[in-house]
Amino acid sequence: MNGAGVRRFGLGLLPWFGAILLWYAVRWSGFVNVSLIPAPHQVAAKFFELLTREGLLIDIFASTRRVFLGVALGILVAVPVGFLLGWYRPARTFADPMINFFRALPPIALIPLVIVYFGVDELAKLVILFYASFFSGVIVMYEGVSQITPLYIRVAQTLGANQAEIFRKVIIPLTVPHILTALRVALGVAWATLVASELIAAQRGLGAMIQNASTYFLLDVIYVGIICIGLIALIMDLILRKITARLLVWQDRAIA
């Protein structure tokens, strides 16, 4: 790592230290009942306990797999649908109100219905995550695709490109950035929806862990669960950003 890299890393770490300090400060300030806020070191201890004795990794794996599958399926459908909506104006006029209607519904409100139609197994959780990923991804896709300028297509036409070549050599490269953005947005939304999806009779999973802990008022477990969700989401986003930077070296970005 070079000097600038170290500095950026440090800059990224700084707010975390700040957050931990603030956390201790709130505890010690006396404004809040200490029994309601486990200290960071207590949460860390709980983390290792859960990791070694309660199979925290199984929960992490269960949740990550759900998110991963939900997002993968959601984006798989969102990409072609978003593309069609962005590309053909009539399609957009036709489907836009519908999409905005469904997008506005909080997935948690759909849970009773999902249970009725899809049962209480893995499928039901996937449906919720799919729903959340699809509707967030499809919007990003079609907003992006509808902003593609016709200039590049015209250039390709004057050079002799046929429809298939225009699609393969112009439209796909121009769509990739929007697919990646849709993926990132959907991933964020899916993690945010995870706890709701695991409300459905889940045995394992970070969301299930949090809910079980809340029944017994185990605040430290709740903190561990929340922090795990945040961290995994962060790591996935970092990986996706690295991939994006690799795939889109050609893009002119304002940030250095």
Binding site: R154, V155, T158, L159, A161, N162, L174, D252
Partner: peptide
């Protein structure tokens, strides 16, 4: 052949790939 006022060079291709673009198409 058209040379557009706004150039329209393909940002996702390198300089050489831009020049080669037309020659990779079925038409030529």
């Amino acid at each position: 052949g058209v040379i557009f006022q706004e150039y329209g060079v393909f940002p996702w291709l390198t300089v050489k790939q831009n020049i080669a673009f037309g020659l990779t198409l079925n038409a030529n």
